[in-house]
């Protein structure tokens, strides 16, 4: 049994890697800049958390200051959310957060920009430490376990949740929702 355990693990890990690769291939054709619809889908998906946020919440738009495209996307998100975004019982107020300043951020949700690359692991650390969910359109960050939920609205709404990342950040979704999305 002890000899077979690693084999099982390898099979499991291999399967998950294959699954994530397949998902990446499926999503590859859908790469595009973040859109207003992406943000709306993400905001609406929050309603399917087991403990959905209510009222006014601060959304931290996490970007890498040394990556122009990340800064650009953060600005774009800031503009989209300017004046607040009210979806259901949630009223979201954006605040930009340099990825170097995650430790001092006082927010209830991370919105991770693309192009952060390996710095994404710092978001994962903050997510776990502060039990704050993270959403992104950068599916790679979800596959790497740095962000809990990835969202794409075009050409078809796709939502991917990393179960391990969700568990570590204390984020749990309603069972109905889990049956409608892709989990890895």
């Amino acid at each position: 049994m002890q000899l077979r355990q690693p084999q099982y693990c390898c099979t499991m890990i291999g399967g998950r890697v294959f699954f994530a690769w397949c998902f990446a291939m499926t999503m590859a054709t859908a790469q595009a800049d973040v859109t207003q619809t992406d943000v709306l889908v993400a905001a609406r998906a929050l309603g399917f958390l087991q403990n959905p946020p209510t009222g006014q919440i601060r959304v931290g738009i996490v970007y890498a200051a040394d990556v122009p495209k990340s800064v650009e996307e953060a600005d774009q998100l800031q503009r989209m959310l300017a004046g607040g975004l009210k979806v259901g019982n949630v009223d979201m107020t954006p605040v930009k957060i340099n990825i170097d300043e995650l430790a001092t951020a006082s927010v209830q949700l991370f919105l991770l920009t693309e192009y952060v690359g390996s710095d994404g692991v710092r978001v994962a650390d903050a997510t776990r430490a502060e039990k704050i969910p993270c959403i992104t359109v950068d599916i790679t960050q979800v596959q790497n376990g740095n962000c809990v939920m990835g969202v794409r609205s075009q050409p078809r709404v796709e939502i991917i949740v990393n179960r391990a990342a969700a568990a570590k950040s204390g984020t749990a979704f309603a069972t109905v929702f889990r049956m409608l999305i892709t989990e890895i």
């Binding site: 609406r44 998906a45 078809r156 109905v176």
Partner: peptide, 13 residues
């Protein structure tokens, strides 16, 4: 929760 058809439809389009 029983299925909230409206909310689900809004999310997934």
């Amino acid at each position: 929760q029983s299925i909230d058809y409206g909310a689900s439809e809004q999310v997934f389009g």
